[in-house]
Design a binder for these strands. Structure first.
Lengths: 235, 235
DNA sequence: TAATGTGAAGACATTCACAGCG
DNA sequence: CGCTGTGAATGTCTTCACATTA
């Protein structure tokens, strides 16, 4: 999907290959990329179940709501531990805590947003992030016309201040919403500033930057995927 | 990914199974979902090459730019035809036309946008769509406070007018940017109005609606994926 | 009894490697 | 000669099916 894709992303694992005597990479079982994506879906749905006051859910119940097989759900959760109770299912509250811990959203992540055009300003106002433990902590642009503009997340600062602010505020993630031509360059600046991961909205594939993880979302491509699926169906 | 689905999406193919005598589904070779996603990436990069005035590109060149192997590129394009020239590579202009035809963006698709909150209004102004042959033709909301507001794509209309306008303007696609709780209901209204495909931005998995293709994009989930990858790395 | 967890089988996707072509 | 197109080999992911458990 949807990505693919709908969003593209970096590799996650580090296949242990033949060398089982390797000491360094702390032999954790690799997580299949599709399973990683589904983990977020589980969490989101479990949270809605909890809001409804439910206590347990079966792999079958999760699967039906998320359009997956029950076996898939069990395999996915099984990658991280034994969370279920035979004859009962999964305890919702407990599973939510476990998944948050796996994803890392048992704590808050600070995010810098670079590029305050149409999309950037929408992202700055989007409420879906806070709930998920992401706090937009600083806004940047290079266009003098938007500098100083004020948002709930603060004022727009010049790109030159990026490294300083990232360090001061201990920002770990960045969202990149600049024009395609500038994306690679700005991404590299973000990396140099100490950002560990970049969510890229620019319509361009970023070349690998050592030490940085990137995930891309391209809105126009998602519409194309929709068109393609329809076109393939009616042929 | 995604990757799946980072973005998630419906099934594309229709596995031919054993029954090779089937008459109905017009035996076209199924397209692997990941390959379908990459097709859009090829197109986008080819267009940028064309803008630079280049004439040909090898599978190796495409692969390097898009972080894929050359073999992968050849396999993918090979799913749709023989577009390359041994010893030369692919002719950029020609390949662009072919891929547009496959995706269906050799013509214009009309799009209705439902839900004019933060995200909806950003989508209404986003320039990345027109270039890709998607024309936002009508805007809808149910909140009286935003009705009548004016955007480049027109004025915001009440949701009750959806079916009428979809038919009048021959709209085929919809973008859904309403709150999660309303997503399924509004998606079903869109289907009834005659829309063939929905790009869903609401943070909820839509249940299957017969006759409609859906692709989902969840911004908060993409940030979670970034966090997860970083968390998995440093464990 | 109603559910999980998990090897084994099967389906699917990627990479290899090389024949063939302009 | 350089590069494509494509079967065959490999690798990854999903589904099956059932022993196991509370």
């Amino acid at each position: 999907m949807q990505s693919p894709e709908d969003s593209q992303s970096e590799k996650i694992k580090d296949s242990p290959k033949k060398d089982s005597t390797a000491l360094e990479p702390r032999d954790a079982p690799a997580v299949p990329k599709p399973a990683a994506q589904r983990l977020s879906l589980y969490l989101r749905y479990l949270e809605s179940l909890q809001a409804q006051g439910l206590e347990t859910i079966s792999s079958q119940g999760l699967g039906t709501a998320l359009r997956l097989t029950a076996a898939q759900v069990r395999k996915d959760l099984g990658l991280f531990g034994q969370f279920g109770f035979p004859g009962v299912g999964y305890k919702i509250a407990e599973l939510i805590l476990q998944i948050r811990k796996i994803i890392g959203t048992d704590r808050i992540w600070k995010v810098a947003l670079v590029g305050m055009g149409n999309l950037g300003s929408a992202l700055a106002r989007y409420r879906g992030f806070q709930q998920k433990k992401f706090q937009i902590s600083a806004l940047f642009d290079k266009d003098p016309r938007v500098l100083g503009r004020s948002y709930p997340a603060g004022v727009v600062r010049p790109l030159e201040d990026l490294a300083k602010i990232v360090h001061e505020q201990e920002i770990q993630l960045g969202m990149l919403a600049v024009p395609a031509e500038e994306a690679q360059g700005v991404a590299e600046k973000m990396a140099q500033a100490g950002i560990q991961g970049i969510l890229n909205f620019a319509p361009r594939v970023l070349q690998k930057i050592p030490g940085v993880t990137t995930v891309s979302v391209d809105l126009a491509i998602q519409l194309e995927q929709l068109a393609l699926q329809i076109t393939l169906q009616d042929r």
